[in-house]
Nucleic acid binder design. Structure first.
Lengths: 168, 168
DNA sequence: CAATTTATGTCAGCCTTGTTGACATTCCAA
DNA sequence: TTGGAATGTCAACAAGGCTGACATAAATTG
């Protein structure tokens, strides 16, 4: 349909055929399992899931972030996030401090233990990503990022861009 | 750590710094939400979820496939898949036929209604992917695919490759 | 100051989708 | 022919989404 195939106006656009796009969709599906496989294995040991990983990742990226901010980034409800945060706080991986500027807010930090788990998780995930990057080469990596950025919803792209520029 | 940054042996390898890799990880996270957003909206209307989408997608890709085969592709337990298949069969979207060669097997097909939903879902997903591809350009798309393929687990890569070559 | 809004937390209950365990059916090979 | 392996189904449970209702505390506004 649409602009399925064939030359159009002088450009070939062969990379926009339904078949090429289908391959992109399936690549995305199968690759995402690899992307989460290593952290999933680590998390399963201590009885955590991907939701815990996401919270830990973004608290590490923005120490002192508020619950509301985390909510927007993760795109879940506060009830859902709260369940995860509560277990992380109870288990001593996350510390929640009453905000100084605005005392309704809670500023979230990783504890020593939380930071240790974060390192374990991100090391595993980075190792795989690094291997994939090395295998594919720098130009492929640039293209990879360009396509992913174009695929994001506007709201998510905003969050991504804020982190993209920030050096840790 | 490892080969964090800086020139190494003559090559720069700047795309392998922890910071570059971290951007790749976050791009993957935020992009995947966009990837599933449109199908999710459609599925929510009829009370289905992503699991239904995955089953429908791969039954459409391999009409007559068996439950066992689908299991290997989706990487879930047979009990989990069975629940999804049962609702799809009850709702008249999937047809299950006793295997002729081996009567323990069930061959799965989409019905007319199932094929209609599959088209609706894949059209929505393809539209977004096509827009991202067009925006990023052909070289970026090639790189995108190369990185994703390098990121897959071996088992998943095998499945991907089988579909990759097959024309519908 | 009183009223309202905002940020957070909590309880209850629902749904999807993952899990394990138990079991029926069918095939195949010893 | 019989026992094991393969295939698929049913039941029950857990994680982690969701909505709705409500409480509390703090900030903001009139």
């Amino acid at each position: 349909m649409a602009e399925s195939a064939g030359p159009a106006g002088g450009e070939a656009l062969l990379f926009l055929t339904d078949d090429q796009i289908r391959k992109g969709i399936e690549a995305m599906f199968f690759a995402y399992r690899g992307f989460t496989a290593d952290p999933d294995r680590i998390l399963a040991v201590q009885g955590y899931g991907r939701a815990h990983h996401r919270a830990i990742h973004f608290i590490n990226r923005s120490p002192g972030t508020t619950v509301n901010n985390l909510l927007a980034i993760l795109g879940v409800t506060k009830q859902s996030l709260n369940r995860v945060l509560r277990t992380l706080i109870e288990d001593g991986l996350v510390r929640s401090e009453v905000g100084t500027r605005d005392r309704r807010e809670r500023n979230l930090y990783l504890t020593e233990d939380g930071a240790a788990l974060e390192r374990e998780l991100s090391t595993a995930q980075r190792d795989r990503m690094r291997a994939a990057f090395r295998q594919a080469g720098p130009e492929a990596v640039a293209g990879f990022r360009r396509v992913l950025e174009a695929m994001m919803d506007g709201e998510m792209r905003r969050h991504y861009m804020r982190f993209r520029e920030a050096e840790p």
